[in-house]
Amino acid sequence: MSEEQIRSLERQFDERIARDEKIEPKDWMPDKYRKTHIRQMSQHAHSEIVGMLPEGNWITRAPSLRRKVALLAKVQDEAGHGLYLYSATETLGISREEMYEQLHTGKAKYSSIFNYPTITWADMGAIGWLVDGAAIINQVPLCNTSYGPYARAMIRVCKEESFHQRQGFEIMMKLANGTPEQKEMAQDALNRWWWPSLMMLGPTDDVSVHTEQSMKWKLKRKSNDDLRQQFIDQTVPQAELIGLTIPDPDLKWNEERGSYDFGEIDWDEFWQVVKGHGPMNKERMKARVGAWERGKWVRDAAMAHAEKKRNRKEKKAV
């Protein structure tokens, strides 16, 4: 293809997106579009899978049968999200094995929030309320993103995530209205998860590298700072409602902006965790890689069995 032809295809491609048309797997797409989507979508899938670990950590110790069942169902939903996000990414011409390989070698990233430990039951509430809350703010705009399989996967993911968020808030509410010990547990979890949740919405706009191109492709519709503000404005009244205190002495309603002003985020901590040196980075990867390696003989057996079955069938047919 001549450069002229490619430019013409790119022009048509950009126009389709501008008209809000969906790009489908068999459509022509610029190489960079494919690569960017593989990167973002697989990162999203990895986040779901790694995200199972901190919550899975409390399944055996959930305080009641009702909570145990709800937590199991939630973690199972996350596995389901991972499954259809991996499938959606596969439509771009990469296999699940390759994506796992990228995760296990550290080439692909996942959401840094999962590199924090879940040390009390209240962390199950805080993750649902804050982490899923921030994730929804990030993800709702993706229901209208330009790549069809991603947009469709996100519609389902978002529905379930908002259920998870309510569930998490309900855990926190119950604790906040409980005994002093329970309330303290809830406040402590909020103290530990608040700042990492704000960081989840990404670096500030002045240092964010992908934003402009992503806006054009509708992989992003609002800037990180706008999303963060939206999250804070939405969450502060919820904390007040259940009598918990946001751990930010600079947090103050700004009448003029109609938004909350908030304190400085510790970006050094953010980059430390992103670069692999958070409290749980090594453990999370060890758990994923360990499960994959321990499972190799099982996957091999399943392949070998399927092959044997196929051969027997063919023999019968002959």
């Binding site: 899978i49 199991l72 199972q76 499960a291 321990r294 499972g295 996957r299």
Partner: peptide, 21 residues
């Protein structure tokens, strides 16, 4: 329930969690 997130594949992980559920 102990196995959740540690299965040999995503599909078996989901199935084992489902049995637990």
């Amino acid at each position: 329930g102990e196995l959740c997130g540690h299965g040999p594949s995503l599909e078996t992980d989901i199935a084992c969690t489902n049995i637990s559920l």
